[in-house]
Design a protein around this nucleic acid. Structure first.
Lengths: 250, 250
DNA sequence: CGATACATTGAGGTTTATCAATTTGTGTGG
DNA sequence: CCACACAAATTGATAAACCTCAATGTATCG
């Protein structure tokens, strides 16, 4: 369907860019155009910075657990974070994977309604909800931006529901690879060798399948030539058209 | 878990209430406290009324189809509406059932991302999106209300995703009955003999099951005494505790 | 380089889907 | 109000997709 690869600026350019920006870390943020922060004018960024704390976690670390009071919201700036819910007997449903630029907390009420765990090493901006609410109050664009994000996520949720309710294992895996590819592109990462930072088990818990079914299905896609594996966590899409057809149920 | 039954005002009281309200239909609207309209002051209601059109549909009528330009949004005031998406081979996923007070269109982009069809006879308030956006611009509370609704729906979508990804047929049916009961209560309808206006087929397409599995599962719940059927479309919950335990996966 | 977690592959079982028949419910016209 | 026709729901028998349990292979990280 596409094929053009938008590359992230290489480290050197990035450093120069940052250096040029003066003393506001937010102004130099790589993902500002993707994040909630894009709703604010350059001149209002200091207000945001005043209430923001940078945080980092290693792969496997827990950010918060379902049921905890949701005092903070976050904006992911690097890495991959997974959100999940558990049933009492241990069955797990991963409800989403988040990447750079994604906002964590829109769906949460007074308590977190899911747990969040780092898939890879991650960095995030943490905001106290209380303070952010206050700031939001004075910046209508910020609220508009959040409404826009919520509506977007709602539309994505519909697709996930269709997938879980009616798609076969083959269709789910194909949809998943394409989704990751499209999201990578959207945030300026390469969209063809597409990274799958999460484990097969995590993929299964996201797609409502077992690890084994995920593995077998990827093998089938590989043997058919539609995709190749560079490593277990890097997929080469050989025939995007075919993948789209499978994903959409033709 | 609960049991108290909040009854709708009977028709006579309703008529008197309406008569008392003067010349603003919105001010007398039964579901105003549930709908988006609750975001507006009494004094601003005329603005809303100026851009609103009342509509009604019979059971089975289509409100809009996936892919159409989404020029309107709606607020459902009576009856039940279903939203669904189709795969090319005809597999269908019902992504939601809407009742009085529910808003249609939050998730939609420039084109409707799902089709909408009346389950029962329905009445709705139609708004031209363009005009509503304009009005919204002047009424920050309206936007806040929409953001609140979107966040609420996002949280509900998480539960639906958990259900479709990880719950058994038995757990899905139990969750579904409880959800309908809770929503009925929330809008002031009886929460115990709980109405199921939709067909078994629709339920199946919502829960990612077939008609037959829905039917068999309801039969099992009936034979175990947990529920009874008044008619096919009215369920009596005999043991709510048990139903909750099943629904939550114990 | 070895230990450990992760991924793949295989054999067999379970749940739910599919196909088919029957019963029940609903709405319409006589 | 009843009889009929049609749609919806139920029930049964069989099949398929995916899960479970188990073994083997392969990255990854001290």
């Amino acid at each position: 369907m596409s094929g053009s690869e938008v590359q992230k600026p290489p480290p050197l350019a990035k450093a120069l860019y940052r250096a040029r920006q003066g003393d506001s870390p937010c102004a130099a943020c790589d993902v500002r155009h993707l994040a909630v922060c894009s709703a604010l004018e350059e001149s209002d960024l200091n207000e945001l910075e005043a209430i923001l704390h940078h945080t980092q976690l290693s792969a496997g670390d827990t950010l918060f657990d379902e049921g905890e009071p949701s005092t903070n919201v976050y904006n992911l700036t690097t890495g991959c974070l997974k959100l999940y819910k558990l049933l009492p007997d241990g069955r797990r449903q991963v409800t989403g994977f988040l990447f750079a630029g994604d906002f964590v907390g829109l769906a949460n009420r007074d308590e977190y309604i899911y747990s969040a765990e780092a898939v890879s090493a991650i960095t995030l901006c943490r905001f106290e909800k209380r303070k952010l609410d206050q700031l939001m109050h004075d910046h209508i664009n910020f609220e508009r931006r959040l409404l826009g994000m919520a509506r977007f996520e709602l539309a994505e949720a519909q697709d996930q529901i269709l997938m879980l309710g009616r798609k076969t294992a083959m269709e789910r895996i194909s949809s998943f690879i394409l989704m990751l590819s499209e999201r990578a592109k959207r945030r300026g990462d390469p969209d063809n060798p597409v990274g799958l930072p999460m484990s097969r088990n995590d993929i299964g818990d996201y797609l409502g399948l077992t690890t084994e079914t995920v593995s077998r299905t990827i093998t089938r896609l590989r043997k058919s030539g539609t995709i190749s594996l560079d490593t277990d966590h890097k997929v080469i899409i050989n025939d995007r058209e075919a993948l789209v057809e499978i994903a959409e149920g033709y």
